[in-house]
Amino acid sequence: MSTTGSVRVAPGVSRGPGDHAPRRPPPWRRASRPWLLLAPTLVILGVLLLWPLARVVNLSFQEYGLRQLASGETNYVALDNYREILGSEYLWTVVLPNTVGFAVACVVLTVGLGTLVALFLNMLGTVWRSVCSTAIMVAWAVPAITGTYVWVWLFDPLNGLVANVLSSLGVIDPGTVNWFADRFGFYSIATLNVVHHGFPFVAITILAGLMTVPVELYEAAIMDGANAWRRFWQITVPMLKPIFAVVTILSTIWDFKVFTQIYLMPGGNGGNAEVFNLGVWSYIQSFAQGKYGMGSAIAVLLTGILLVITVVYMRTLFKEEDR
């Protein structure tokens, strides 16, 4: 990155030979400054999320039903909930493959599509870029619940647009198939829905990032004869690495815990246990079945998986950053 700094001059700051040395604060203030800056965040997160999270963990060691909830009593069963979850075939053959497969597909497609769209938008003139990014924003702004109903309608096996087109092409006979009942069909539609709802975030963020990359870098590269492909890998990717990293990490976290889009699809609210992911399973155990301890244990399991993934991501990320 050292090659880039030299070409930048911040506005409003003159750079003259007679200027004095930087005014650096005393060491104790330097040491406390990051903590001061972090303090509001830590207070809010600690009180509102970390403490409740600790309660979720606490609940996961209990057999906790509506009765306990109403009376506030505790009922510890040590690791029973975890033993039951981890010992169940259902977790390993259905829920975990659903969760992981779905999340991986969504992350790859969301980040891939989002990046492509961002690069494309970056090539457009101001007017069309605004038009397209506003359209993309519409995709993001449509409430997940409404979006899900639209996708379900689109793929309605009887009256939906897709079924109509396929049947007029003679591919299917409407009324004989129901892709919602099939695990793969169900998740294909869910993936489309989640990618459609998720790619705007990636596209807008990467576009914002692209716009901070100095044009001179590309101009210099073009003069050196680098083609678009090489410019992307040699300038865009390294410059935007932190942004790509955050987009990927956050997408991973969200796509692992997708709930609304699965729960609202036919069968996703409990009728078809073949299509649960960890989030839906946890919710159904807690709220539908009144087994809050079990639901909490599933939630903790999901959190644990994400924690491991994130730490692995960050290892690679920081290795390069710290050099």
Binding site: L48, P52, L53, Y292, T303, T310
Partner: peptide, 24 residues
């Protein structure tokens, strides 16, 4: 700190409904 900040994003929100409700 970075992991901690992210950690709270990892919890399924649905599981937080009751604890967060009591906290609020």
């Amino acid at each position: 700190m970075l992991v901690l900040i992210l950690l709270v994003q990892m919890v399924p929100l649905e599981a937080l409904v009751i604890p967060l409700f009591l906290q609020a």
